[in-house]
Amino acid sequence: MLVKTLLIGLVSLVGYSEYFLTGASMIFRPIALAPLVGLVLGDVGEAIKVGAAMELAYIGVVEVGISTPQDMVSASVLGTAFALSTGKGISAALTFGLPLSMLVLIVQNVMYIFVAPIYVNKMDEYAKEGKDHQLSMLAFWGGTAVNFIPSVIFIMLAFYFGTGFSKQIINAIPQFVQDGLVVASGLLPAFGFALLIQQMLRKDIVPYMILGFALTAYLKIPIIGIAIFGLVIVMIIYYNEVKMKKKFDSIGGGIDDDDDENF
């Protein structure tokens, strides 16, 4: 159990490397982290399936600007771990993953608000003195230690103390709640898509959404096919724009726009 807990900690660290080492590589998504948890707990196949279900449920969780809606690493790691330990799949992943990851978010915010300013101030001093080496060390190690290590420890504790109880907890939950959570996991992608649509929404691109919906709903075209259709449409629009621009330039040649010759 101790070894497993340490390995779970390592997996969480890999997950947080999204921020401190792998540059937004999406390693923190459930689709990528779940198999690693499965490797630790000895059931990779089932873990991948749980990861896929979680990925869909959390599809709308995107870090845009400064808003961090949820801590994906703890949601993925603890969700998968308890889904496997209880054998209840996605409903256990949500039952444990949602509330625990919100607690982790609180831990992170406390560190951000109260501890992070300390190393940032120190970095300011180093910058003023031109000490680039010290500044780099503090940025990488200080940042990693303050922002991510507490969350890793929290995940390890939750895993260590939770695994034994997870079965009792989930068995104490009435069946209709568990079924309801499975229903919720089917509905949550709607939330994700709504967030994505809201981000991109402009009246003039709504037809493309309807087109995508109709192509799959009626013709059952897989996503890769939709992406190819989309690419074709974008190419047509692009070439039309180029053509229009040439026409426009040849009519209204009064404006000199040298840059356009380069294209």
């Binding site: 089917g186 509905l187 691109i205 799959t216 075209i221 996503i223 992406a227 974008v234 629009i237």
Partner: peptide
């Protein structure tokens, strides 16, 4: 221009994912 075209592609894919991945029975 790039952002517009990415949005078109994105909207098509999102539209396509609604019937595939939103489940309500």
């Amino acid at each position: 221009s790039i952002s517009d075209k990415a949005a078109i592609l994105g909207m098509m894919v999102v539209g396509a994912m609604i019937p595939t991945y939103v489940v309500l029975n």
